[in-house]
Amino acid sequence: MSDLAAPMKTSAPLSGVLAKALLSPFWLRVALLAVVLALLEFYGRVYADPAFMSPPSLIVKAFFTKIAPQEKILEALWFCVAQISAAYALSVVFGVLIGLAIGATAFSRTAFLPIILLLFAIPQVALLPLVILLFGLGPAAKIAFGFSHGVFPIIMNVVAGMRDVKELHLRAARSMGASRMETIRHIILPHAVPSLFTGLRLGMTMTLLGVILAELYVSTGGIGYYTRVFAESYDPAPLFALTGCLAIIAVTFNELVRIAQNHLTPGKRRSPTLKIPVKE
């Protein structure tokens, strides 16, 4: 296919190059986004009931008139960011440590991995009211809930990464005289890095989920309070704007992990593709 396309590029110089650039997946995605926004704008202005739906332009306006000037809302958003950071930091530290401990030997893996899988199979939302009861309405509950979501994918992917180390690499290291510690340090851990990052990215998605679930559940303060107020007053523009802020926060956090992954994976190896945790 690409062989066939190659001579065409030379025969149609400028317009061909331009068309190729514009037809690249990236720009097509940008175009797709623009079309969706335009349609929303059109629908929002012409047809939609203003009590339920706002055109994007009004949402942006609402951000500057109704969200940005309100210190309390900004504070709630910052709190949200802080909680996500704290919950994620805890998830990473404990996830990696527990993962390393479980992945260290075949015995610990067979003994403890099923327990982790069992815990992971529990739908944690069922515990949300309990977590709030235990930790109160403040940030502690949200951090705890974010942590309990984020930690499992990290543990599971660290264990999986350590387990899937190549037998041939282990044998080569042994023939070179590597000690057990050296094997872990130079073979098993570097091998687990891509899988670790898969875990870190999933962990981030799950931490975001946990914190936001808890935020929305507690409707007497924080983000949950404002979403309720906006929703109940049939004032969709600021609700959409607030949601947009949270979405931007979520995307930023995800991107940070992705950038870290791209810079910190040695040997330019690709991570196993991002998949949502599969319960085996």
Partner: peptide, 16 residues
């Protein structure tokens, strides 16, 4: 989109 918690948009589902 799937890496962003859809839960974010839950208030909108309630609204709609």
């Amino acid at each position: 989109l799937f890496t962003v918690p859809i839960t974010l948009f839950f208030p909108m589902f309630i609204l709609f």
